[in-house]
C-alpha cells in the first residue's frame, strides 16, 4: 500500500524505444513473413526487459545527485523499500509495453500463435527485476552520472550483442557463444524464444527460470547492500567486491551450461523456425 503510493514518483518512462525496435526488426528482418514474427518478437521482448537496466540506474543516480534521495532518507523509508518500490513501478511500466508488442505482432504482423504466455510472463517478470537490479548495482558502485553511463554502456553492449537479442545466438562465433552462456541476458533471450516458438511450459524452462530468479534475488540483495542516499558519500571499495559477488552464480551457471546444457541446440532450432517451412514462398509486398 505504501509502495503503491511511492510508485507515483516513478511514472515517467516511455515505450518509444522498444516499439521502435519492434518495428525496425519486423520490417528489416521479418519482411512480412508471419512465421518469423515469434522469433523476432522474443528478441524485442528481451530488449524491452533488458531496457530496465538503463532506466532505473540512470534514474537512481539522478535522484541521488539532485539530493532527492536525502529527502527520503529523513522520512522513515528503508533502502530496500526504496529499491523495491522502484523495481515494482518499473515492472508495471514495462508490462503495458510488452502487451502492446504482443498486440502489434498479433494484429499488425499477423503472428499466428501467442506462444506459451505463462512462460513468457514468468520470464518477463523475472527478467525485468533482474536487469533493473543489475542496473541499480551499477548506480550504486558509480559515483557520477558519467561513470554510470559509461559502465552501463559497456555492459549494455555486451548484453545486446552477444546474448542473441540482436544477432541470433547460433550466428555468433563459437568463442563468443562460450562467453555468452555466462550472461543472464542469454538465458532471458533463449528462454523467451523457446516459450514463443516451442511453446515450452515453465516446467521445462527450469534452468532459465532458476537462473533469472537467482539473478534477480542476488542482484537485489547486492543493490540494497550498496545503496547510497547521499551524493557526497562515495562508493567504498568493498562495494566493488559486492558487485563482483553478483557475477558468481553466473560463472557457476555458465560452467554447468557449457557442460550439460541444451541451450545451443534449442537456439539453433528456433532460428531455423524463422525460415521454415515457408522460406521459399516469399510474400511480396
Amino acid at each position: 500500500m505504501r509502495l503503491a503510493m511511492r510508485n507515483r514518483a516513478f511514472f515517467f518512462f516511455s515505450m518509444i524505444m522498444p516499439l521502435a525496435f519492434l518495428f525496425s526488426y519486423m520490417t528489416l528482418f521479418g519482411r512480412g513473413r508471419a512465421q518469423a514474427v515469434p522469433y523476432l518478437l522474443a528478441m524485442v521482448l528481451a530488449l524491452t526487459v533488458m531496457g530496465s537496466f538503463w532506466g532505473l540506474s540512470v534514474q537512481l543516480v539522478t535522484f541521488r545527485e539532485q539530493g532527492i534521495l536525502r529527502r527520503f532518507r529523513v522520512a522513515p523509508v528503508t533502502a530496500s523499500a526504496m529499491l523495491a518500490s522502484s523495481l515494482l513501478s518499473n515492472y508495471f511500466l514495462t508490462l503495458p509495453t510488452i502487451a502492446v508488442e504482443f498486440f502489434l505482432c498479433r494484429f499488425v504482423f499477423h503472428m499466428t500463435g501467442l506462444g506459451n504466455l505463462i512462460s513468457v510472463f514468468v520470464l518477463v517478470t523475472l527478467g525485468t527485476v533482474s536487469f533493473a537490479s543489475l542496473g541499480l548495482i551499477v548506480a550504486s558502485v558509480t559515483n557520477t552520472m558519467q561513470e554510470t553511463q559509461i559502465i552501463n554502456q559497456i555492459i549494455w553492449f555486451i548484453f545486446l550483442f552477444i546474448s542473441g537479442a540482436t544477432i541470433p545466438f547460433p550466428l555468433l562465433p563459437g568463442a563468443v557463444q562460450a562467453v555468452a552462456v555466462f550472461l543472464p541476458a542469454t538465458y532471458l533471450v533463449s528462454g523467451l524464444q523457446r516459450a514463443m516458438i516451442e511453446h515450452t511450459g515453465i516446467a521445462s524452462l527450469g534452468m532459465y527460470i532458476a537462473s533469472l530468479m537467482g539473478c534477480a534475488l542476488i542482484a537485489f540483495l547486492v543493490a540494497a547492500q550498496l545503496f547510497r542516499w547521499d551524493p557526497e558519500t562515495k562508493a567504498p571499495r568493498r562495494a566493488k567486491l559486492w558487485a563482483a559477488a553478483a557475477i558468481v552464480p553466473f560463472l557457476l551457471l555458465g560452467a554447468w551450461e557449457t557442460l550439460n546444457g541444451d541451450l545451443r541446440a534449442h537456439a539453433m532450432k528456433n532460428l531455423r523456425s524463422m525460415r521454415e517451412p515457408y522460406s521459399l514462398e516469399r510474400i511480396d509486398h
Binding site: 507515483r8 514518483a9 515517467f12 539530493g67 532527492i68 536525502r70 529523513v74 522513515p76
Partner: peptide, 17 residues
Amino acid sequence: KYIIGAALQSTALPDKM
C-alpha cells in the same frame, strides 16, 4: 524518524512530482 521533521538545505523532489 517519526518524531522529526526536516527541511534540508540541498535537496529536491522529482521534477514531475
